[in-house]
Design a protein around this nucleic acid. Structure first.
Length: 474
RNA sequence: CGGAAAGUGGCUCAACUUGGUAGAGCACGUGGUUUGGGACCACGCGGUUGCAGGUUCAAAUCCUGUCUUUCCGACCA
């Protein structure tokens, strides 16, 4: 275990993270700050996430479209709040060929303006509504501090944009898509999330309100992992998305948008992975089983191929490592890449008519007779592994979830062990700013139907309005 | 955007202080022996030292600028 040395997680978490990214060949750095090369292993993971989410979007009545990469400056500026929020991190195209452009073009940081402009052309009557579109694309935000997957200047995402006849319907959509994200995180990524509403300070620029899913990383730092915004009529009024309603009156429609990004790959690493590299939940792993022949002899390979065929038939993603590396090398390689199960087959096993199945997460080995139903057992182990990865993540999150009643307690807790802090808040921004002085602790979300932990705001002691979950942000 | 550090074959580093033909280990290629937790032997390929300029007879080495990476703060998916 010398070649691919990964920095121990508890020694230097940030270094460990980038070591895992590099060792698993998820991404490589490029020549432009904040732009990474998605290597095959990283891109396959994104494709897998895409395929699951895309199916869920379609099941909930959405269609995919594709909007342009460039946004004319005047179009971007029609809605004041959005441009204010994004101005500091927008990249501009100012020349075409050798000529300076009459009007600068913005490289999309998000596409509300493009969707809104388009919707204003096509929405004429209540009969045209709702329109529920999504796009898979790249966006660009000129970040100063960058980290692979977690914060890059160019990243891949999906952005859903919908227009509705009524407020109720749009709000229902906002909630529904947040639920889709939550289910995806918990069922596929095996990452427990908390949900709630962002404060005014933390919400998306231009939204009436923002709903969020927040996950807790292994080190107790929080990651905003998906957001769903309710826009009301802000954009429809700015971009004139009007229609004739059922009473033959001109109305403005109600909008939503919601998105998840390649940051999810970062979350997967920071929640599940360990000193030996990446650990992937079976349901999201692009390659689920690696068969390792200990010797490349005909008899061993024959059994390996036979097992491969059986698993493939059942839709399990499986490969045989036929390289002429030593067995130990193959084991380590499969581990660093996070392949959930490894099946070891060698001549010693075959003498006893058995094979060995090893789980990536616990590295627990199990001997299986060739007479047993291997497909059933593999499926079974993967199911167990999926469930156990989720409960382990949940247990860790719960053990890093605290309730605080005073600012002193928050300070003490954040210095000892950061995590999710439950505490009351009066609703004043100045109290959020005061909280931020403690190692950058921010409000993660307002808990819907939250508890009455205290009568007073944890910061100022005035009457508390909201039950808020706080944490240090990535 | 402030503060700090670093950039030399694919990777980890040496040579830099004191300017004088860029070197090692790993990886890679070929042949062979191997294979149950990162095998071994032999031979071999691969670098205008991040980039640009300057000083000098001579620059990896000294100077200036710039780009990238990492860490710490301010700002954000």
């Amino acid at each position: 275990m010398k070649n691919k040395a990964i920095t121990p997680r508890d020694v230097d978490f940030a270094k460990w993270y980038t070591d895992v990214v590099k060792a698993a060949h998820l991404a490589d750095y490029s020549n432009v700050k904040g732009c990474i090369v998605f290597e095959p292993n990283g891109y396959a993971l994104w494709e897998k996430m895409q395929s699951v989410l895309d199916k869920k979007f379609k099941e909930t009545g959405h269609q995919n479209v594709y909007m342009p990469l460039l946004i004319p400056e005047n179009l971007l500026k029609k809605e004041g709040e959005l441009i204010q929020g994004f101005a500091p991190e927008v990249a501009w195209v100012s020349e075409g060929g050798e000529k300076k452009l009459e009007e600068r073009l913005c490289i999309r940081p998000t596409s509300e303006t493009l969707f809104s402009d388009y919707y204003s052309h096509v929405v004429k009557s209540y009969r045209d509504l709702p329109l529920k579109y999504n796009q898979w694309c790249n966006v660009m935000r000129w970040e100063k501090e960058t980290r692979p997957f977690l914060r890059s200047r160019e990243f891949l995402w999906q952005e859903g944009h919908t227009v509705h006849e009524t407020q109720e319907e749009a709000e229902e959509e906002t909630r529904k898509m947040l639920q889709v994200y939550k289910t995806f995180f918990e069922d596929y990524l095996a990452i427990p999330v908390i949900t709630g509403k962002k404060t005014e300070k933390e919400k998306f620029a231009g939204a009436e309100y923002t709903l969020t899913i927040e996950a807790l990383m292994y080190n107790g730092v929080c990651l905003q992992s998906g957001t769903s915004h309710y826009f009301g009529q802000k954009f429809s009024k700015a971009y004139d998305i009007s229609f004739k309603d059922r009473k033959n009156q001109l109305s403005y429609c109600y909008q939503t948008s919601w998105g998840t990004t390649t940051r999810m790959i970062g979350a997967l690493i920071m929640v599940h992975s360990d000193e030996n590299g990446l650990v992937l939940p079976p349901k999201i792993a692009p390659l689920q089983v690696m068969i390792v022949p200990i010797q490349n002899s005909d008899s061993v390979l024959k059994v390996a191929e036979n097992v491969e065929e059986k698993l493939k038939k059942e839709g399990i993603e499986v490969k045989i490592d036929t390289s002429d590396k030593s067995a130990g090398f193959k084991f380590a390689e499969a581990e660093v890449k996070g392949i959930p199960l490894r099946i070891e087959i060698g001549k010693r096993d075959l003498e006893q008519e058995k094979i060995v199945i090893t789980r990536r997460d616990t590295r627990e080995k199990r001997e299986i007779s060739l007479k047993e139903d291997i497909v059933f057992i593999v499926k079974n182990i993967m199911e167990t592994m999926q469930e156990e990865m989720f409960s382990r993540a949940k247990e860790r999150r719960d053990s890093f979830t605290f309730t605080c009643h005073t600012l002193e307690e928050v300070k003490e807790q954040m210095n000892k062990q950061p995590g999710f802090i439950h505490a009351m808040w009066c609703g004043e921004e100045k109290c959020e700013l005061k909280m931020k002085e403690i190692k950058g602790t921010k409000s993660r979300c307002i808990v819907e139907n939250g508890e009455r932990i205290d009568e007073c705001c944890v910061v100022c002691g005035k009457k508390a309005k909201h039950h808020v979950i706080w944490g240090i942000q990535y």
